[in-house]
Design a protein around this nucleic acid. Structure first.
Lengths: 235, 235
DNA sequence: CAGCCTCTGTACGATACCGCACACAATCCA
DNA sequence: TGGATTGTGTGCGGTATCGTACAGAGGCTG
């Protein structure tokens, strides 16, 4: 019975030299990530890191009053749980599955051991963390200066980049939680973008119709982040 | 002629075991950081990292249309130029001196060499980078959800924490650039906070009068960041 | 097929911030 | 001392988003 997925569908794992990959291979555990599942909670020590394959995970901060905002998004280009190897073991944010799928997970101590070999894995993880820094920084700037329409397009593009599909399953309510705005605001933005013929939206199913058009409608933030990921990460 | 400052006024350098500190001591170069000086530019390879002593450096992103926003702020608790050891060698942001003073700088290759010893320096720098991640994440959230009044208080507190003084030299124009808002908006926020008796503002000189009051008026973001810095970093 | 629940669309006043214009006040300097 | 420069305060219409309320539409289930 062949696996439906291979760990090397995650770009970080794929970039490891086979010697390093084989050392951890046996400890990679394939698990499903159902929509809405939380991979870690604010301030709680993490036990695993996750390498998404065909799923998307949102890092988001939930405020005292319940409102929330996405800080960054992780797909098969990255890893969830950087604070394990960065040394803090926890962060003040949550990691929530935004698009269901699968991931490979690895026990924290094993990853740290691998990290402290100071080999290719360490270099990869650090470069990825820098890309994550850029994404967070750009999120901050975008939240400050750009319209909801632009941010919606940026968000769509970031999500579709991390999926191998042209359809995304996601209600406007959930998107609103990610963007930190009202659900009605998303209705309006989505309506605008749909009228422009760039996407098709239907009860939680978003299909991308015109990628170039979306990129044009999004703010510069998307391009900046994408360029930086391409520069810093293999492939 | 004694030095006016000691490198160990920077908390990261102070936290190094003397064996490690002495290895780099001779290569630390004390330099003045005049107001407005840029320590690195977007996309340009960095040659140095900087350990501020009594100065404050803002990491900020400048957009295509010229508007800007602060991403994070670095004082004597940290280091400017994390992308040097993270592997990217550059970032899409700028580092600008927000409050004049001094710093010690170290050539990039020397820092990287030290980093790859995988000793205390590496651990410190990684933990600091995680703290920086938290600050950026919180900036993003804050930009999304909080009022200018709250953000202004948060910003003041972050700045005063990085100074050993109760007076900050900074025009409303400059603050507006950091917060990514209009100068008039800062006038109003500053006026409100001054009316409340928390600060005294006079032509570019801000004096803090009631720190507890400021903390109360600021959003939760300040406390979250401060707590995380205290948790992750020595002292 | 009827009924229910989820998801989406629309409307409307409130509000925070913007962009612009301009007056005034403090400081510097010829 | 008088004029220029820099920094601050204020007013006003415009706009994006909010909070709330509610109506319709698609899809599931009994």
């Amino acid at each position: 019975m062949p696996l439906a997925h291979d760990p090397r569908e995650n770009h970080l794992l794929a970039a490891l030299p086979s010697e390093d990959y084989e050392r951890i291979f046996a400890n990679l555990e394939r698990i499903p990530l159902p929509l809405g599942e939380s991979l870690y909670e604010s301030g709680i020590q993490m036990s695993y890191v996750y390498f998404p394959i065909n799923s998307i995970v949102s890092l988001l901060y939930v405020m005292e009053d319940g409102s929330s905002a996405e800080i960054a998004v992780v797909g098969n280009e990255g890893i969830v749980g950087v604070s394990l190897f960065m040394g803090g073991e926890s962060t003040p944010s949550r990691a929530v599955v935004q698009s269901a799928g699968h991931a490979y997970r690895l026990r924290g101590p094993l990853l740290k051991h691998e990290f402290y070999r100071a080999g290719p894995m360490q270099r990869l993880l650090l470069r990825y963390t820098q890309a994550l820094l850029t994404q967070m920084a750009q999120t901050a700037v975008c939240n400050r200066h750009h319209t909801l329409d632009q941010q919606f397009c940026r968000w769509l593009l970031l999500s579709f980049d991390r999926l191998n599909s042209d359809e995304l399953v996601m209600t406007q309510e959930l998107i609103a939680g990610m963007l930190g705005v009202r659900r009605e605001g998303v209705t309006e933005a989505a309506g605008n973008v749909q009228k422009a013929g760039l996407i098709k939206y239907s009860r939680g199913h978003i299909t991308i119709l015109d990628r170039a058009g979306l990129e044009k409608r999004a703010c510069e933030c998307y391009a900046v982040v994408k360029k930086e990921f391409d520069r810093l990460l293999p492939d």
